[in-house]
Simulated scan of single mutants.
Amino acid sequence: MRPPFDPELEAALVRRRDEVVRALEAHEIVGLRDRSTTPAAVEEAAAGRFRTSVLTAVRDGRPGVEVVLLRPAEAAGPVPWLLHLHGGGLVTGTAWDDVVPLLDLAADAGCAIASVGYRLAPEHPYPAALHDAETALTWLVAHAGELGLDPARVVVEGISAGGGLAAALALLVRDTGGPALAGQLLTCPMLDDRNDSGSARQMAGHGAWDRTANATAWRAYLGDAVGGADVPAHAAPARASDLSGLPPAFLDVGSAETFRDEVVDYARLLWRGGGAAELHVWPGGFHGFDYFEPTATLSRQAREARRRWVHRLLARTAPAVAPRIVEGQR
């Protein structure tokens, strides 16, 4: 037995069945890459609200990394920003993917978006994607002043594989003393290469991105090491035994998806490590439901929960404003 889908979302699964990625085999990866979002689609959605630029982040000894920066058009000073890591199972996607759904959140919170075009597996297995994310973060923080970004108010964010990569980046910079993060926003994150949770088995063959697709993606990223005893937490964050010292986290996941149990377990580990974590399990949600069907009631509720969390986080990290002294009050 599996949990039921939300009726509104189930209707979308049926109506748009040809767009659903449920099972994925290795030979299908190249074809899936043809479905990436175009730059024109992002620029059209951002027009009038954001100024868009394409940058190259560099670090000694590593390849340059494409970063698409969307900065609020009317912002005067340094702004907080989302370091966005796109989804796609670590095997597909570009820096332009999953950006359009973020624009309303960023505009509402007064944030910029810096989206990272990390290298993809299987051509570039672990740790290529993580190194690219780290390069982008480090370079952007170093150049924050000239880019109009606040180096102390960066939230690493991602959906699906990008959510897992965001969690891995938070672990990496904690362990190496890299740039400090204000928060981590993890939407249905892909965290566990072992792919054997109760929800992974329960949802096999159902919804979106099932256990077969997940196995294909992890094998592309980790090769023969997948599922073994030596996979590091920087590759699969669910392997971490210590989640202390991490920035506040927001995690959400559907009740009817492969990643449900690993996301719930990750939140539990964050709490055990003394961290701040807000967890939402959306009843009847399948993997990536609010990106797939954004007008559904449950999708709107999920986006609103993220919006509120971002506002609370940024309010807590806002720079102090010196009191204004009025003549005669000295």
Rank of each mutant, 00 (worst) to 15 (best):
V58R: 11
T52Y: 06
E28F: 00
V65D: 03
V42P: 03
A57R: 01
G48L: 12
E25T: 10
R49A: 11
V68C: 06
G64S: 09
R62D: 00
A75N: 14
L69M: 07
P63R: 07
L9A: 13
L24N: 01
T56R: 13
R35D: 02
D18P: 02
A12E: 04
E8S: 13
T38E: 06
A40K: 03
A41Y: 00
T38Y: 04
T52H: 12
V65W: 05
E25S: 07
R17T: 10
V58K: 02
G48F: 10
L9F: 11
L32D: 01
A46Y: 04
D60Y: 13
A75R: 14
I29V: 12
L13T: 15
D60H: 14
V58E: 10
G77H: 10
P7N: 08
V58Y: 01
A57I: 05
E10M: 02
G77T: 08
G61R: 08
V14N: 06
P7Y: 09
E25N: 10
G77N: 06
G48R: 07
R62C: 00
R49Q: 12
E44Q: 12
T56P: 00
D34C: 05
D6P: 01
D6Y: 12
A76D: 15
E43R: 05
E74F: 09
R51H: 03
A45P: 10
V67Y: 00
S53R: 08
G31Y: 14
A11H: 12
T38G: 08
A26T: 11
E74V: 10
R49Y: 07
L13H: 11
E44M: 07
E74D: 14
E28R: 06
P63F: 05
A45L: 07
A41R: 03
P72M: 00
G64E: 06
A12I: 05
T37W: 07
E74P: 02
L9S: 08
L24R: 11
V42S: 00
L13W: 05
A40G: 03
E43H: 04
R59G: 14
R71A: 12
A11F: 08
A26C: 03
A11S: 12
D18I: 08
V58W: 01
T52P: 09
A73G: 06
L9T: 07
V67P: 06
P7R: 07
R22F: 13
D34M: 05
V30M: 08
L13M: 13
V20Q: 02
E19F: 07
T37C: 12
V30L: 09
E28N: 02
R62E: 00
I29C: 05
T37H: 13
V42C: 09
E19A: 15
A40Q: 04
I29T: 03
A11K: 12
E25A: 11
L55E: 05
V54Y: 02
A76E: 15
G48I: 14
S36V: 13
V20A: 04
R33K: 14
V65C: 06
